[in-house]
Write a protein that binds this DNA or RNA. Sequence first.
DNA 1: CTGAAAGCGCTTACAG
DNA 2: CTGAAAGCGCTTACAG
Lengths: 339, 339
Amino acid sequence: MKRLTLDEIGHLAGVSRATVSRVINNYPHITPEVRERVQKVITQTGYQPNVIARSLASNRSTIIGLVIPSDALTIFTDPYFPSLIQGITQSTNQLNLTLSLFLFHSMEEEIRTARSILNTGLLDGVIITADRREDSFVSSVLKHGLPFVVIGRPELVGDIPFVNVDNVSGAQLATEHLIAHGRRRVATIRSVSNTAGEDRFIGFQNALRNHSIKLDPRLVAYGDFSLESGYVAMQQLLPAKPDAVFIASDTMALGAQRAIREAGLRIPDDVAIVGFDDLPPSVHAEPQLTTVRQPVRQMGSTAVELLNNIVNGIHDSPAQIILPVELIVRASCGSEHTN
Amino acid sequence: MKRLTLDEIGHLAGVSRATVSRVINNYPHITPEVRERVQKVITQTGYQPNVIARSLASNRSTIIGLVIPSDALTIFTDPYFPSLIQGITQSTNQLNLTLSLFLFHSMEEEIRTARSILNTGLLDGVIITADRREDSFVSSVLKHGLPFVVIGRPELVGDIPFVNVDNVSGAQLATEHLIAHGRRRVATIRSVSNTAGEDRFIGFQNALRNHSIKLDPRLVAYGDFSLESGYVAMQQLLPAKPDAVFIASDTMALGAQRAIREAGLRIPDDVAIVGFDDLPPSVHAEPQLTTVRQPVRQMGSTAVELLNNIVNGIHDSPAQIILPVELIVRASCGSEHTN
DNA sequence: CTGAAAGCGCTTACAG
DNA sequence: CTGAAAGCGCTTACAG
């Protein structure tokens, strides 16, 4: 079936296509009678404007991109991304924006596609996630001038618009929870693969310092946010006999739990642990994971709203948003005392 | 910075914009010398055509949609979707297509957006996933004429193009594996929420029939693919004393494992289990899960290729593709015998 | 308040 | 083989 055009709607309503366009775009100064007549034809015919023609004429596509750099491909199966996408689509649906997803499988692909994202004019703006240090995508978008928002704290300084969670406070809260339960040999599994990992390590250190606990370097191990890396890191920590571990992500905590169990130790009796994220799997861990809840969906929806404001030239909202986190106490540390 | 246009490239190369367009689109009959001259200007300037203008003129956007109906929202955090998206983007990146993601949070939103997907002309085609019975999205797309491919077996009959896995054979394989290990009270946790669930139940029944095992109705429980539902279903099965369970998804199997453990039974000694999916969590289950591997990424990439062929009017490939599955033997049933 | 007209940046018959 | 011109379906100054 042939799609209707503005002209045809105009004919049917006895007005010009300009008037129909104005009715559709809620231009204020239109005679009520005319508006009604046009509206009726639109409803009857089910007419919807061709968004591509509209984009070309208005220089606005109402399409925004979600960019996930290639080094995040391996962690893309984490439940973090589906949650984030749920938050993002919640806002895009509400604002009538279309979301395009850019997921790269290699650095070469990323570079090639970055060029075309920036130069073909399809997008009104992009959300860049999976914050990593010295993000080349951020710097090229910045140079180009395309509106964007980063999810997470960008490595680059300056007034880059971003939406982040309070990783420092969260990690500090988690670590102090361990200390409050009488633990003194508090270890950590940290990550240096992004700024979130860095900030969480800072919070961990803050807590120790507040309680005058000196950090034994043997109580620090590294992971890359994968379950396997948590498993290995925990095995490295065990000889140093920690009685508690703050782990920078729930997925790594799942791996750590297994290492602890395999060593014949009990959680939390021998080793108490606290994770970070509070994604679905943390409830299904055994024992259930005490963790820091970060509002992932809210990060997604907030990022869209912020980007939309930037695209529309509205800057009343702060361009750098840090969302609060919350300690969720479960069996892996402290639920017997607090529940 | 102002973006260049075809006209400007033409000026720089001393040809008309029509010629530049032909060079870019690999029109064959161009004097090599001219082609080279134009090519050089394009390279030097880094020119890339405005995709929106191109879409309007050519009536092709090179954008395809991935539609995930609202009743799949709750299972969207399953690792199934990230894997599928990885497969899809693998092909879209390779074919230079842009992927738009449509995820709905309510039926109302779904209906509203479906209309605009179909009527605004943005997409060249859609991939519809999360097969559910009587998919209203499929029927409206079908009526409208927009090219589409379903992932999974659609409920509607007819020659609807789809990419599916061999659920029947997979379930049969899994169940026969249980039987081959001497189990006779073989239960199942099935699901009726989509055709995959139905087909897997058929495979389960086939296996029993092949071995002349009568199905005790108390050995059938229902789930909805969530971990919780697997947990509850397993609790319902336990009084009937199964010595084996075929579970229609790994996520439900994780829940079932917990129920079995909590009942003080051992896996596989008391109850052997086999799941379906082989997504990452199945390796991290305790014990590791014997399961049926479905090539999720391949489904995604195949769906894109099929859709691309349909959009381009190429029909040499079969429009209905069923990918093979594979039994992966681990500790939850049989690895001691086969490894 | 409304219409005629120009223009967004491409593609593609139509001539030559 | 190449160019001039029409056209894709909208938006939006500019007049009136």
